[in-house]
Write a protein that binds this DNA or RNA. Structure first.
Lengths: 212, 212
DNA sequence: GCATATTTGTCCGTATGTATA
DNA sequence: CTATACATACGGACAAATATG
């Protein structure tokens, strides 16, 4: 059996769950023992995560969980605007991805009504992944997924709590409606405004937390 | 000194130079001996290149140079259209990246006059990297660089010779002029048309070569 | 289909370099 | 400054999977 890819998935799961906090040093020996793999196997997984931007590899100082600063956040939102808006604006009608978007919004409404904010946050990610899936590009989806995972670390760093995503459930609904009933251009414009507000909220949290 | 990152660079250099052909198996023992590194070090570099899409890693069957098929090429051009056109359309005026674009076009004209088509190909990549640099996003530039490197492998696979880039020198010039003298929207439209033609040319080469 | 050789996956031990206490 | 802890890289070893005859 292949430990390697499942090891990457396990580590990613811990990272986005916040069990390995941003900035935390990741000891080779400790983690190797914890996951019951050799240091070499773990190091190979570290290289993959480093390339994905989830961990930082500082020469001769080891590996630590990525800890995005404000310029990282700004860069991440630049990527989001370019990719998400471009994909939505050029999306064809009746793309199956729209159904994924619809489900994500619908389920998010239910989850919000049940005060399950963790679920709301997860469904928010599903919605935006669905948007990018309108591109039919596996490479774009892969890169975008990495960026969203990195943004998740930014949330964890300044403790942007999941319930703060509440207002965005309705915004996602509006983006979807614009795509279905108006025009891709209008939907992309709404999405761009959404991303601007979302970015401001995260940067505000950084300022309050006194992070650079 | 850090062997690891320089090893990745050395391998990347060989790959885009065509010394390691698309589809070629990369023996751990042989390459480790050739680069005078241990197998473990080489395997870590393989993981990085795998994440970048330059090599394929099949468990228990080793690593081989990526060999993009037609659907890969189509996917790559989807990414190029979304990223390059979106960046150009939203680029500010007087961005320093425009100077890089200008230099690439100017030098390409000279190189074309001197029949140095290898150089023309390199400068073509410089031009499009410069376009993406208009985004001021390091993540976008990194992802785009990986995609361009993968496209380079596609060229090598079907032997799209560098002199075929000759007509595109003028197209790049037109894109630049549109950006400088007309509007970002007009420049993006020209770039989109350019990418469509470029994609057709590559897919034509695939058809002639009988590749899927 | 079977036996053998090759290759990969994993792990350990150790020497060296680096930063921290 | 010395000592300690840790990360890096190498080399060797063996099991497991694959390729080859």
């Amino acid at each position: 059996m292949n430990h390697e890819s499942s090891l990457v998935n396990q580590l990613t799961g811990r990272l986005i769950a916040g069990e390995l906090r941003p900035g935390a040093r990741l000891s080779e020996a400790a983690l190797a023992k914890e996951f019951d793999v050799s240091r070499n196997t773990l190091r190979e997984a570290f290289r993959v995560l480093g390339e994905q931007g989830l961990v930082n590899h500082i020469p001769h100082r080891g590996v630590s969980v990525a800890s995005p600063n404000t310029s990282d956040v700004i860069d991440i939102y630049r990527v989001r605007r370019h990719i998400e808006c471009s994909v939505l604006e050029n999306a064809p009608n009746n793309h199956p991805g729209a159904e994924q978007m619809r489900r994500a919004v619908e389920t998010a409404h239910s989850a919000a009504a049940a005060d399950d904010w963790l679920q709301v946050g997860t469904l928010n990610m599903s919605f935006h992944n669905a948007v990018v899936s309108l591109s039919d590009s596996s490479r774009l989806m892969r890169s975008f997924g990495n960026v969203l995972a990195e943004l998740r670390l930014a949330f964890l760093k300044v403790e942007v709590l999941d319930f703060l995503h509440a207002p965005f459930v309705e915004r996602n609904q509006e983006v979807l409606d614009a795509y279905l009933n108006e025009s891709p251009r209008e939907a992309a414009a709404k999405l761009g405004a959404y991303l601007g507000d979302s970015e401001r909220q995260v940067l505000g949290a950084y300022a309050r937390a006194g992070q650079d």
